[in-house]
Write a protein that binds this DNA or RNA. Structure first.
Lengths: 337, 337
DNA sequence: GTGAAAGCGCTAACAG
DNA sequence: CTGTTAGCGCTTTCAC
C-alpha cells in the first residue's frame, strides 16, 4: 500500500500555520475579496505549503450536500449510458457536481439495491433509466427529497420529472417504413421486456404498425433473446426456421440487428434483397456494417444534458419548465431496409 | 423535486423510540447476539417503525473509511471497463465496498483531475488503467496512503501494485502469426499512443515482430487514428493507398479491425484471400463479424477480480502475494487471418 | 475583517 | 449486557 507518510493537512493545520482562524482560511478560498491583503497573502502561502485539499466527506456532512449525482442504467457498455452520462456530466460540471454510475443489468431488484445504496450515500440527485421500477424503489425515490429524473422513455406519471422519447412511436415509425416497403412477413427480434419498459414499448410499436397495415402480429414472428450480437444471430435463425418466407425483421436494438445481419452474411442471405433488417438506437456499428442499418437515432447525449439541467434547476430552487420533456427521435433510412 | 416529507431518521431517533442508547441500536444491527433478547426486540421494532438507514457520509467521516473504490478507464463503452468493473465489483461486494467509475477519455490530464477528485472524496482504494501517468498523479497516488492498482499493462516500477498482461508480447504474438502466414507488407492501424501505454506497446509489438521476420517496420505502414469503427475504415483506405500490395494488417483494437473489415466489404476486398486482418481485445464483435477476427483475448474480468482481491488483502493488512500479477493472454486464430 | 461556538450523524474507545 | 464521552473535518451562525 502506497504509504501515507505525513498526515493529510486539515483546515486547522493551515490556520495555525498562517496564524489565523479556520474561518479566515475558508474565506480566503471562497471570497478572497473579503480578506485583508496581508492576511490573504499569509493564508495563501500556508495553503501552498501544506498542500491543503478540502475533505469532501466532512464537507458533505456539514453542509448536507455531497455534490454527487447518481445515474443508473442497465449496462455500462453499449455507449447508451456513456453518452447520457457525458451529457449530464457536461451539464452539471460547472456547478461542482460529480457523477456516480451504477449498472442494473436489466434487473429491477438490482436497481432497487443501487437506489438504496446511492441514497445511503446521500447523493444530491438521481437519474434512473426507464419508467418501470419496483414499488419500493418508487417509494424511496419519492421520499428522498431530492430531484429524480426518469429517462429514455416517457412515463404517464413521473415520480418527479422525466426526459426521453416515445420508444413506442419510434419503433412504430421504423416498422411502418418496413411495412410500406416490403410485402411479406415482418418479424421482430427483441430482448426481454421483463423490467424493461423501453423494450416492451418497442415490441408494442412493432405490433401496432403491423396491425395498422392489416397484418397480424403473430407471436411466432417475435423472437425474444438476450441483448448481444450472438443472440441476434441466433434469433435470425429461429425466425427463418419458423417463417422461411420472412421478408423483413425489426430489431429492438442495433446490437441485435447487427447480429442478425452477420448471420445473413454467413448464410448468404442477401440484405435487403431477400431480407430487410432494421435496428434501433443508431449505435456506431449501425452506420458501419455492410449494408448500413436502417435505424432510429435516439437523443442519448441530449437526454443526459437535459436531465442535468433539470437537476441543476431544481437544486437551485427554480423548478421551472415542464416536468416531462419529449426529445423525439429520427428515423434513419439506410441501405439495409 | 420529490418532497422529503418527514425528515430522515437518525440513530438517535431510533434510540429514543426504543428507550436505549445509540450504541445499543448499533449493536443490535452489528452484533445482535450481544444484546439482550428483550432489548433487541424493542430496538428492532423501533428500527422498523422509523425505517432507519445509516448515513454513509457520517459513517465515513467517523470511521475514516468511505467503503468506496474508484476505477479509472479511458472509456465507459467498449466493454473493457465494464468487464473490469464487474470483476472488481464481484471481488469486493462481499466486503461492503461500492465502486465509483471515472472516464478519462485517453487524457492524462483528465486522469489527474479525476484522481484528485476521488482522493478528495476519500475513496479507500483506486484502480487506474495503464502505467503512464502525469508526475502529479503519481505523487498523489503514492502519498494517498491507500491501495493503488495499475491495470491492463505491466509496469516496470508500479506505484503500488499492478495486474495485467504484456501488451507488447500479445501484439508481437499476433503479428508473428501474420508474418508466418503471409508474405507481403504487413500494416498496422493503431490509436494514438499519447498518454496510452497499451497502444504504444501494441504498436511496439508489431514493429518487433516485423523486424524479427526480417522486414522493416516502415513508418508508412502505420496509420494512427482515433478509436472508432469509422476511423478503422478510413485507416484501411489510407494504408491501401500507400501500399496497394498490402497483404496483412494488424489493428491495435478489434474496433479498428472491424472498421477495416467493413471497409474491405465495401471495396470488395476479399478477407483473408487478398488481405488478412487481425485485431486485439476479443470484443464480442470480433467473433461475430464475417469472417470472424483473429485477435488476442485479454483477461478483462480477471484483471478486475484480481485487482479487487489485492485491494481487499491490502486493506485488511495482509498485503500478501506478488505486487505485480501477469495474467497473460491468448492468441485466437479465426478466419480473418 | 475576523473569530468562537455549535453542530452534521456516526464510530471508537472506555467505563460500568 | 449497556451507556458515556469524545471526536471525524468541515460549515453555519452569530458576535466582535
Amino acid at each position: 500500500m502506497a504509504d501515507g507518510g505525513a498526515r493529510r493537512s486539515r483546515l486547522r493545520d493551515v490556520a495555525e500555520l498562517a496564524g489565523v482562524s479556520t474561518m479566515t482560511v475558508v474565506r480566503t478560498m471562497r471570497e478572497p475579496a473579503k480578506v485583508a491583503d496581508t492576511t490573504r497573502a499569509r493564508v495563501e502561502a500556508a495553503l501552498l505549503r501544506t498542500g491543503y485539499t478540502p475533505d469532501l466527506v466532512a464537507r458533505a456532512l456539514a453542509s448536507q450536500r455531497t455534490g454527487m449525482i447518481a445515474a443508473l442504467a442497465p449496462l455500462l457498455s453499449n455507449s447508451l449510458i456513456a453518452d447520457v452520462v457525458q451529457g449530464m456530466s457536461d451539464a452539471v460540471a460547472g456547478y461542482g457536481f460529480h457523477m456516480m454510475i451504477g449498472a442494473t443489468g436489466f434487473s429491477l431488484e438490482r436497481e432497487e439495491e443501487l437506489v438504496r445504496a446511492f441514497l445511503a450515500r446521500r447523493v444530491d440527485a438521481i437519474f434512473v433509466t426507464g419508467i418501470m421500477h419496483t414499488p419500493d424503489t418508487v417509494r424511496m425515490l419519492r421520499d428522498a427529497g431530492i430531484p429524480v429524473v426518469e429517462g429514455a422513455n416517457l412515463p404517464e406519471a413521473p415520480i418527479d420529472s422525466a426526459v426521453g422519447f416515445s420508444n413506442f412511436n419510434a419503433a412504430r415509425s421504423v416498422v411502418r417504413h418496413l411495412c410500406g416497403r416490403y410485402e411479406g412477413p415482418t418479424g421482430c427480434i427483441v430482448a426481454s421486456s421483463v423490467g424493461n419498459d423501453r423494450m416492451r414499448d418497442r415490441h408494442g410499436g412493432w405490433a401496432a404498425a403491423l396491425e395498422e397495415s392489416g397484418r397480424a402480429a403473430d407471436p411466432s414472428l417475435t423472437a425474444t433473446v438476450e441483448l448481444s450480437l450472438e443472440a441476434g444471430a441466433a434469433a435470425l435463425g429461429t425466425l427463418m426456421a419458423r417463417h422461411p418466407n420472412l421478408r423483413a425483421v425489426f430489431c429492438g436494438s442495433d446490437v441485435l440487428a447487427a447480429g442478425a445481419l452477420f448471420e445473413c452474411q454467413r448464410r448468404g442471405i442477401d440484405v435487403p434483397g431477400r431480407l430487410a433488417i432494421a435496428g434501433f438506437d443508431d449505435l456506431d456499428i449501425a452506420r458501419q456494417v455492410v449494408p448500413a442499418l436502417t435505424t432510429v437515432r435516439v437523443p442519448r447525449y441530449e437526454i443526459g444534458w437535459n436531465a442535468g439541467q433539470m437537476i441543476i434547476d431544481r437544486i437551485a430552487g427554480r423548478a421551472r419548465g415542464p416536468r416531462t420533456v419529449d426529445l423525439g427521435f429520427d428515423l434513419l433510412v439506410r441501405a439495409s431496409a
